[in-house]
Amino acid sequence: MKNVVASPDCSQNMQPVVLEFRNVSFSYGIAPVLENVSFTIRKGDMTCIVGPNGGGKTTILKLALGLIQPQQGEINLLGSSPPTNVTRVGYSPQYIHYDPRFPMTVIDIVLTGRLGNALKIGYSKADKETAKYALEQVGLLEKMQVPFGSLSGGQRQRVLLARALACEPELLLLDEPTSNVDAASEVHFQEILERMKQHVTLVLVTHDLAFVSGLTTSVLCVNRRVLSHSTGELSEQVLREMYGNDIKLVKHDPMHRR
């Protein structure tokens, strides 16, 4: 297995560092999830994190947010170790453990993106405007008063994206934003991402390479280690590398040997 950690091309990109992992290792109990992971994401990048299931993609996001702490290594989020600057980050998880009967409407949920640790009695008018604008961005403004539980899977995912946008983030971390989205919504998502790319640094976990190939400025292939970190367009070589890995996985799987 190759262990290529491409150093970012400094001559081309002198934008400030938004997120940096330096030799980060993390394990749940004794099972290692990430080993010696290093990468740098700069302002304006759109980074795609790809890799097999269980490879540690989501763990990278959780470490960046300070939801979990690494056993080794250092993480720098917007100039300080997480979770210090976490309120400047928007996060949209792949799943949420939510109760479909929880009494919250779509706008209520998007508004929670306006929260921080500061004392706050209710939401301000500006908060409500920001939340509405975020809903408009994902095309769900007309659903604002609808209970969250009554939406389709794709719509829910868009609400979670709006909640992340309502944070007015400098860095946006999206975990599989298209995992249960239908084809029509997917096109919509692509447009949203393209628009957001102008304003924020984006980190996107996905296994849908076709979805991002046109948008991405760098790709991080993760399977316990960072297998490659290529800057620039998602090259054919990286794609082939990933694709090749997948084929090997199938071959080694005894279930498929007939």
Partner: peptide, 17 residues
């Protein structure tokens, strides 16, 4: 607002600091 946020989605609430 924070109590509701914590009840609804604890992880996101933590990600808001």
């Amino acid at each position: 607002p924070k109590l509701v946020a914590v009840c609804f989605d604890e992880e996101f609430a933590r990600a808001r600091g």
